[in-house]
Design a protein around this nucleic acid. Sequence first.
DNA 1: ATAGGGTTAG
Length: 641
Amino acid sequence: MPLRFVTKPKRTSASSSSLSFLINPTFTLFSYHSFPSPTPQRNTNPKPDQTLCLSSKLRALPAQQSPSSYYVSLLQSCIARKAINPGKQLHAHLWHMGLGLDIVIATRLVNLYCVCDSVTDAHILFDRIPKGNVFLWNVLIRGYAWNGPYEAAISLYYEMLDYGLVPDNFTFPFVLKACSALSAIAEGRKIHEHAIRTGWEKDVFVGAALIDMYAKCGFVGSARQIFEKIEVRDAVLWNSMLAAYSQNGCPDESLALCSEMALAGLRPTEATLVTVISASADIAALPQGMELHGFSWRHGFESNDRVKTALVDMYAKCGSVLIARNLFERLKEKRVVSWNAMITGYAMHGHATEALVLFEGMKEKALPDHITFVGVLAACSHGGLLDEGWMFFESMERDYRIDPTVQHYTCMVDLLGHCGRLDEAYDLIMQMKVLPDSGMWGALLNSCKIHGNVELGEVALEKLIELEPNDSGNYVILSNIYAQAGKWEGVARMRKLMIDRGMKKSIACSWIEVKNKVHAFLSGDNSHPDSDAIYAELNRLGVRMKEAGYVPATGSVFHDVEDDEKTTMVCSHSERLAIAFGLISTPPGTRILITKNLRVCEDCHDAIKFISKITEREITVRDINLYHHFGDGICSCGDYW
DNA sequence: ATAGGGTTAG
């Protein structure tokens, strides 16, 4: 479960200032110690560092060269190497020489502090110099857009307007990036207006930034409008639009746009492929992903590690862990992202041992990060490995200096829940240093459902209602907990609560890809052209399942109806329709891969076990939490999900 | 003179 509830951690911004020598002019970093007198002295510092390199360069200043251009090139090399300390020495020197207010030099100094993640220092310097040109503002706005606080980038932009300056084609991408980071749609729209008024809306750079801003705020339609308005479209602009679709759950549109891009005569770039491959990974569209695999190879990306890592992720998410592993082994260089994709791939499929063995191998080759540990802990959780889980959880802080985030705690809650230690899970939530989110309470609620703990389930639901009041799924789970415990008055209360609050049960949907076409089914759906054949297959299966000992369990049917009717309802759950369709439209022995937007219900889970045995098929169901691999009557999740 | 848009793992 924790693999699904994820948010990006916020980047922290540089806060302390080290420009004291500017605030207090009597203090200077520039001293004879760092800039030795012409007579060379023995260096008392055991480690000759960049400071001394720089000071010798300053000493060697050629007389005929203008000091300004010489310093500019020195500054440029500090910027290129992100060399903050030599840069500060140079800054002090320039200030001493009276060149600190030179606009070209000052702008580069502001840039230096920005690229060295010292935006606060950059701003202090900015406040002390003339601000007559847009360039200088752009550099600082970019500094904030990259490092945060993002609000500062936006307020600086407005200060710039107040100052009487007109934003240019560089200003817009920077300030829009800050809007994207904040999902600040209102600000983004205003700035879009400014771009129209200043005539920059159709610039490819501004356009790409606008597309990205609208996409990150969830407005794909607006993003597409921008895209349509731009006449010379380059690859990056196409990629922005592809990403917009992928990020907003429109992988089909993303794939379609990719073909359009090819028709328009543009060669795919690395970003194109990574984006569309990850889009097909998201819907577990294996045939489509395989086609993209071939497409990438044909376009010369066979040895591209980033594309290959995206393919590793795609194959893993489509249930082909072996192919994923094979590609993973062929990477020229395994970076953290690649290890993480493979480890989380194993974790999602419940291959706990493989995930942990891989992690041991990784430790010697790359530095694990917080995502690695989410994967490792999720693996422990799926495998019910309590001791190992605690060991990794403790090691994370002790050996890698990674502070556990809410996701790591969620994995631990899930793991404790898995092992039936619900009170310990609750205690952990109470004593942890991070704020519990809906994923955390969701994990606890899920554990309560599995172990039939009504009391803690009620606590979890109460918290969930505060955090995500419109998610009906939570009410349904608690209702199911009541139903399993035979507490029908609880079931009735939940139903009343849902009606009073105008909530509807989320619509379940399952889909399967057959011959490059996605076939989606809702619960009780009979709109598919082969509907009759599908229900006939379900009936045939029903008879054989009964013979094999299957008894329909109706506990997970939320509605209070008669048993017969309940049976009919679970029998037409969307995953069963998709599976039946898969059975009649693929040759015997073909593996069937189903994706479902919600969790699989108990009865379907049980039924699919029987179906896998009777039909001798391998059936994989990817539900909202994890993969269920059914084969020969058992499921890889060990009935814990 | 100096700066720029898109992509992967949870």
